[in-house]
Amino acid sequence: MKICFIMYPWDRISADSDSTLRLIHECAVRGHTVAITTPNSLTIRDSGAHAFCNVLKKKAKISSNVPTFYKAADFKRSKLPLAGFDVIVMRANPPLDTIALNFLDSVREDVFIFNDIDGLRIANNKLYPASFSGEAARFIPTTHVSKSIEYLEQVLNESESEKMIMKPLNGFGGQGVIVVEKSAQKNFRSLLEFYIGGDNGNYVILQDYIAGADKGDVRILLLNGEPIGAMRRVPGEKDNRSNIHAGGREEKHSLTKEEKALCKALGPKLVRDGLFFVGLDVINGKLLEVNVLSPGGITRINKLNRVKLQKQVVDFLENVVSARELVEERKSVFRKAIEDAEAL
Score class of each variant (00 low, 15 high):
Ser146Gly: 12
Pro295Asn: 04
Ile117Leu: 00
Phe139Met: 04
Asp86Glu: 13
Arg335Asn: 15
Arg241Tyr: 06
Gly173Asp: 07
Leu192Tyr: 02
Asn54Pro: 00
Lys252Val: 02
Glu160Lys: 14
Glu26Gly: 09
Lys331Ile: 09
Ser294Phe: 09
Ser64Val: 06
Val313Gln: 04
Phe277Ser: 03
Arg306Ala: 15
Val307Cys: 12
Ile13Asp: 04
Met90Phe: 03
Tyr70Glu: 02
Leu223His: 04
Leu222Asp: 01
Asp16Ser: 14
Gln207Pro: 11
Gly173Gln: 04
Ile338Val: 14
Glu26Ala: 13
Val107Lys: 02
Ile205Glu: 01
Arg241Thr: 06
Leu206Arg: 10
Lys252Ser: 11
Ser190Asn: 13
Arg30Lys: 14
Ile283Arg: 06
Glu339Leu: 14
Thr256Arg: 04
Ile338Thr: 07
Ile244Val: 09
Glu181Cys: 08
Pro227Lys: 01
Gly84Leu: 07
Asn102Tyr: 12
Ser190Leu: 14
Gly198Leu: 13
Ile298Val: 04
Leu104Ala: 12
Phe188Asp: 09
Ile205Leu: 06
Gly197Trp: 01
Ala28Leu: 07
Ser161Ile: 01
Glu109Gln: 08
Tyr8Gly: 00
Asp18Arg: 06
Asp340Cys: 05
Leu156Ser: 00
Ala92Phe: 00
Ala15Ile: 01
Asn124Ala: 13
Ile220Pro: 02
Leu326Thr: 14
Ala323Arg: 13
Gln185Lys: 13
Ile298Glu: 05
Ser131Gln: 07
Asn284Asp: 15
Leu82Phe: 05
Arg91Trp: 12
Glu237Ala: 12
Arg138Leu: 03
Pro168Met: 12
Phe52Gln: 11
Leu293Gln: 13
Phe114Gln: 00
His50Cys: 15
Thr299Gln: 11
Lys58Leu: 03
Ile149Val: 10
Glu237Ser: 11
Val66Lys: 00
Arg232Tyr: 10
Glu162Val: 04
Ser190Pro: 01
Phe103Tyr: 14
Ile178Leu: 13
Ile149His: 00
Val155Phe: 02
Ala49Thr: 12
Arg22Ser: 05
Val204Asp: 09
Asn40Pro: 00
Ala72Asn: 12
Leu255Phe: 00
Ser242Met: 11
Met90Ile: 15
Asp105Met: 14
Tyr195Ile: 01
Ile88Cys: 08
His245Arg: 08
Glu193Gln: 15
Ile298Gly: 03
Asn40Tyr: 08
Val320Trp: 00
Pro227Val: 04
Ile178Thr: 12
Thr38Ala: 11
Val89Phe: 08
Gly285Arg: 05
Lys308Ser: 13
